[in-house]
Write a protein that binds this DNA or RNA. Structure first.
Lengths: 132, 132
DNA sequence: CAGGATCCAAAGCGATACTG
DNA sequence: CAGTATCGCTTTGGATCCTG
C-alpha cells in the first residue's frame, strides 16, 4: 500500500523525518542498539568505520528525535548507555527488514552493477569512476 | 528478527547496499516510480526540491544497482521512462513501510525535538543551531 | 570512558551554460 | 525533452588534541 499522504512535498514533516533516517550510520546504530543498552565506545568499536565525531553527532540527532535515550551513570570513569525508546523500538523492525533485504538481494545488486559497468566501459571512461 | 549476518563489518556487501539506499532522494524516487513508468521531468516536478543534477545522478545509481530500468523511445523530442525492475519491486514494500512509519510517528518525533531543544536552549546556544 | 573543539581536505550540491 | 559539463561554494567528515 503506497503512502496515503504526499511525501514528495518539500514541506512535509514526514519527509523531514524520512530525510533524517535516510542516513547510513543512523540505521546501523539503531540496528545495533535494538536488543540491549550499548555504551559509546562499544558502538564505536562495533560499527566499523564510523568516526568518533560522526557517532557522537548521529547519536545526538537520534536522541533529539526521540528514537533512543541516553543514560549517564556516576561511575568512575563515567558510564553512558544508549537504549532504544518505545518510538525507536517501533522503527527497528522496519530497519531490520531493510537490512534483511540488503542481505538477500546484494548478489543481484552486485551482478547488476557489474553488467552496467561492463557496458559503460566500452563507451566512456566516466563509468569507471562510478564503479570505484 | 535481527539480521543473521554482521552488517556492522566494514567490508560487508550488504552494508554497501544499505549505504547506497540510505539516501533520502533514492527512497523518494523509488516510492514515486513504484506504480507506473515516470518520465525524467515528471520526477523532477513531483519530487520537490531535488535538482536536475542530483536526480540524474541518483537515477543512474539506481539503474546501476538494478532497481529500476530506463527506456528510451524515439519520439521527437525523445521520451525516457523509468520503471521499477522486479528487484526494485521487491524493495518498494519496505520503502513504503518506512514512509508509513514516518507519517504515523512524525508528531512524536517533532514533539521530542521540541522538548530536546527547550532543554538545550537553557544551557548553550549550540542547540539553537541544531534546531534550525 | 565519553565526548567537545578545532583545523583542514574532500565530497556534495546548486546554478549556469550547452547538446542531441 | 532529457540530459552532460563545468565552476564555485557549502557542507561533511576525518584526524588530532584536549577535558571532566
Amino acid at each position: 500500500m503506497p503512502p496515503s499522504y504526499n511525501v514528495y512535498e518539500d514541506r512535509c514533516p514526514a519527509r523531514q523525518v524520512l530525510d533524517r533516517l535516510a542516513d547510513k550510520w543512523a540505521l546501523l546504530i539503531l540496528a545495533r542498539i535494538q536488543n540491549e543498552p550499548v555504551r559509546f565506545n562499544q558502538l564505536r568499536r562495533d560499527i566499523k568505520g564510523i568516526s568518533q565525531k560522526v557517532l557522537s553527532q548521529t547519536l545526538k540527532k537520534l536522541e533529539r528525535d526521540g528514537l533512543l535515550s541516553r543514560s549517564v551513570y556516576a561511575t568512575v570513569p563515567v558510564t553512558v548507555e544508549y537504549v532504544l525508546t518505545d518510538l525507536g523500538q517501533s522503527l527497528v523492525q522496519t530497519v531490520n527488514t531493510f537490512a534483511h533485504w540488503a542481505e538477500q538481494h546484494m548478489d543481484a545488486v552486485l551482478l547488476s552493477q557489474a553488467k552496467y559497468d561492463a557496458c559503460a566501459v566500452s563507451n566512456t571512461a566516466t563509468a569507471l569512476n562510478n564503479s570505484i
